[in-house]
Amino acid sequence: MDATEKKLVNNDFKDIMLNRHSYRKFKKDVKISDEEITQILKEAISAPSACNLQSWHFVVCNTPEAKKRAREVMMPFNYPQIDTASTVIFVMGDIQSHYKYRDVWNKAAENGQITTEERDKIFKTFLPLYEKADRNFLEKDATLDGSMVAMQLLLLARAHGYEANPMSGYYFDKVVPQFGLDPERYIPITSIAIGKPDEEFTKSVRYDVSEVTDFA
């Protein structure tokens, strides 16, 4: 058992995944330290990403002042989560992540994880694809990456003994500038309220898998 695994309160994958629910009210007296949030995010960024671009960025609202700023860009039906959650994390997409692409793969080559030939092949194939891409392509790519890391973040919140609620009810054009980020680089993907639940979750009905699946 490694150091990361020892920190998990719940290591039952089936329970973590199948018993995940969205709560809209949390216990106000529960605090989550910056250190634990950092650990959760460190675990979350093991998520896959397109071409290993890791096109994500996080804004952690872990203080009353930061949560107030988060509330200012949220729609009213999400106020209960904002007002009671221990922390709120905005997941952003980074559409300029390819600018750092060489650093990632140079480090992989230096560490012996790939050969220099494999690295150079990546530089000649994937890198030009992103360097020549338009904003629409880059936004879709970053949205894919951000969505995968957000789902992982939701599950890890449960693994650490909390519950979480993903939220998209905010003013998309206001989120990035609200936190002093560059709107030419970052796009909002979702926001996640995390804490200890203070009410029962709303039970939802799921479509039968046959209604949403085609075998080609």
Score class of each variant (00 low, 15 high):
Phe58Met: 07
Asp182Val: 13
Ala164Thr: 04
Leu155Pro: 05
Val59Pro: 01
Arg71Val: 02
Gly146Asp: 00
Glu65Ile: 07
Thr84Ile: 13
Val60Gly: 03
Pro76Gly: 08
Pro64Arg: 09
Leu129Asn: 14
Thr115Leu: 14
Ala108Gly: 11
Tyr186Gln: 04
Gln54Leu: 10
Tyr162Gly: 03
Asn52Ser: 10
Gln113Glu: 08
Tyr99Asp: 13
Arg135Met: 14
Ala159Phe: 04
Met1Ala: 15
Ile114Phe: 05
Gln178Phe: 07
Met74Trp: 03
Asp198Ile: 11
Ser86Pro: 08
Ile37Gln: 05
Ala3Val: 15
Val104Pro: 03
Arg135Pro: 05
Ala150Pro: 02
Thr84Pro: 04
Glu211Ala: 11
Thr84Met: 11
Val175Ser: 03
Lys68Gly: 01
Lys42Cys: 11
Arg69Gln: 08
His57Asn: 08
Ile40Phe: 03
Ser22Tyr: 01
Phe137Pro: 04
Arg135Tyr: 07
Ser22Asn: 06
Val9Asn: 13
Glu65Pro: 03
Ser168Trp: 04
Ser46Thr: 12
Asp83Arg: 12
Ile89Lys: 00
Ser147His: 02
Ser33Asp: 09
Ala47Arg: 02
Asp83Gly: 15
Gly180Gln: 13
Ala70Glu: 01
Trp105Cys: 05
Lys14His: 13
Glu110Tyr: 09
Ala108Tyr: 04
Ala193Gly: 00
Met74Pro: 00
Phe58Trp: 03
Ala216Gln: 09
Gly161Met: 09
Ser204Lys: 09
His98Ile: 12
Val209Thr: 13
Phe77Val: 06
